[in-house]
Design a binder for these strands. Structure first.
Lengths: 351, 351
DNA sequence: ACGCGCATTGCAATCGATTGCACTGAAGCC
DNA sequence: GGCTTCAGTGCAATCGATTGCAATGCGCGT
């Protein structure tokens, strides 16, 4: 099994000692040559690097990391609610993952992507405890404020995409949900919509904040919210819920959905019931996923600064790894993107 | 709580030796106890495992992997065309990534997600050469058949999502693109569409095969393809190209887009020009991404078996890692999902 | 010719775990 | 009682790299 003298077995991956033998030097020299150490003569370095290239040799970064104690891998964790693995379907998530991938690559980190049961966030912690990742980026805080606090308190490098909450020990980055909710309300009011519905799961902190901002503005304007439905982020339930709402309250003229996905589902349900969007019902989404501008009708939505957010999360995490104190929360500006799905109602006579 | 020796520094992560000291045994014993070796007495094992749980200790899997030589990480690589990082925007990709995440998790593997320049696929190879991953899953073969062949020939564990090609040394898993193209053509012909357009980049093997299947059937039926546009998988260019095609050939009545994303963009462009879908122009997409059934109009499309595909890719890769011979290609059945976007034209008198 | 300094290179310890082998003590056997 | 056996545990080598320190060789000053 262990035959050392034989010519490099092409099935076994080459290692530094093999390359050293080929070059007629010691492994130390190879190590230094490949690392570009000034201790090595120009000649030797050149020769060794060429050899390495020739044989497709790459230093084993697992060994390197073990020795140096430095880890260049960050775990990005997407929790899913047990029962539905669907959470992964939201395009917003993918935008975020893409942004994180970019930000991490730019800084020379690898990204370990992991889906875990939201009820067992500690499974994510063991990625760090087990040395596989240097730190954790969680997308969405879900209902697990306390678990997250506990993780942060025991010193786990951690950044969460989500809402800023009271008594929060961990670091969050997120859009300004309150502001987002307000923007939507103001917009719908300007569009003379008065019989409004909110679609979303207010059990989630981010959605709850959007809801609060939304209703606060409504109250300021003396408009009353007609209905509020608690639906998970799933397309199917969005569709069904919207249909059910229409039965209950047929004269709805405005919908605020807490995600673009939900908004699209709602539009589908509305059309099935013969409602025109935006003429009869204005629909506003949240996230500004790429597809929303190509949807039919193009979707009015609240844009979350995904790229800025991804970069900010990485930045915060690296700061923690560098030993800096944990920043509690970073709240990013959001803005309303007005498109067709919420243009002013065609005939005011109708309302 | 009994800790008599030097209190473990909370800043440094605990390691096996520390736990051994706490338990008053050697590291060997701890190692065996945690691994559940039968060499260790029930008593000791119990005691050590409890201790480990108490201190949040998880064995350092980097060290374990180094020692054992076994790697439990697979790199999933999403190449992007240099210039546009956009490739990541395609929802099909996310479906695939989700499916892979599931399949890998199920088998106890971690997933390293990496976006790399499609021109430099060897950068992906170094993930394996460098020991960071046991094998490579590439999503999309792009224009790099030869590079992939070279990688496979030097024994790199590799599976690619893509088309089956001649002279192929590497393993692919993919939908039956030829069949998919045929299905679309047959469908459009049944719908009495005759002035057809193909939208897609035939420089990509998969798209080329869809195109071949499509045109083969058209020829069988004596229908001639009106136009064919080479557009990348980007939404923006899809929109623009569609608009340009309309200028050139205003009486188009059917579009086959090589991805759902492209189809959605095309529908947007058609509507802007006052064409109704499906009444004036039928549009068919490819992939059956989740959103396509909620699009307006719901999109007729070719369904690719994403979950089966993801599982098959993982299976093939693990087989290679287990030393089995490389299977050349696995082609999965596709099927047409008929929805609104391609219903028969309203007035046959028109055609 | 000797010694010093500088430019290179090699030796060996180290990172955190695993594991073959040796060792210990007690029980079992005749 | 002496010897084997076996359960339970520890020692030390090992995985593949990195790095402080020692060693080598060469040039050169005097």
């Amino acid at each position: 099994m262990s035959r050392r003298t034989a010519p490099p077995d092409p099935r076994k991956r080459m290692q530094m000692a093999d390359l050293a033998r080929l070059a007629g030097v010691s492994a130390s020299t190879v190590s230094r040559a490949l690392a570009g150490s000034p201790l090595i003569s120009e000649d030797t370095r050149e020769r060794i690097q060429t050899l390495a290239r020739q044989f497709n040799y790459t230093v084993n970064s697992v060994a390197t990391d073990l020795r140096s104690g430095v880890k260049r891998t960050i775990a990005v964790v997407v929790p899913y609610e047990p029962g539905t693995r669907q959470s992964f379907a939201d395009p917003f998530l993918h935008g975020m993952i893409g942004a994180l991938a970019d930000a991490l690559t730019e800084r020379g980190y690898e990204m370990l992507l992991s889906r875990i049961d939201a009820e067992r966030l500690d499974a994510a912690a063991s990625l760090v405890d087990g040395g596989r990742a240097a730190g954790l980026i969680l997308i969405g805080q879900w209902r697990h404020h306390d678990q997250l606090n506990a993780m942060a308190e025991r010193g786990l490098p951690l950044v969460v995409w989500g809402a800023k909450l009271p008594r929060q020990q961990y670091c969050t980055v997120g859009g300004d949900n309150l502001q987002g909710g307000r923007l939507v309300a103001e917009h719908l009011i300007v569009q003379h919509r008065r019989r409004l519905v909110f679609l979303g799961d207010t059990g989630l902190p981010e959605v709850a904040q959007r809801f609060r901002g939304f209703t606060a503005v409504l109250k300021e304007h003396g408009v009353e919210l007609q209905l509020r439905a608690n639906v998970p982020f799933l397309v199917e339930s969005g569709r069904q819920t919207m249909a059910a709402l229409l039965d209950e309250q047929p004269d709805i003229d405005g919908v605020f959905a807490s995600s673009d996905l939900l908004a699209m589902a709602a539009i589908g349900a509305l059309r099935e019931r013969g409602r025109r969007v935006p003429e009869d019902v204005a629909v506003v989404g949240y996230d500004d996923v790429e597809l929303s501008r190509h949807f039919n009708p193009p979707l009015t939505t609240v844009s979350q600064p995904i790229h800025e957010g991804g970069a900010a999360m990485v930045e915060q995490l690296l700061a923690q790894l560098a030993g800096e104190a944990v920043t509690r929360a970073r709240v990013l500006d959001t803005r309303l993107v007005e498109r067709e799905s919420s243009r002013a109602a065609g005939s005011p006579a109708h309302g």
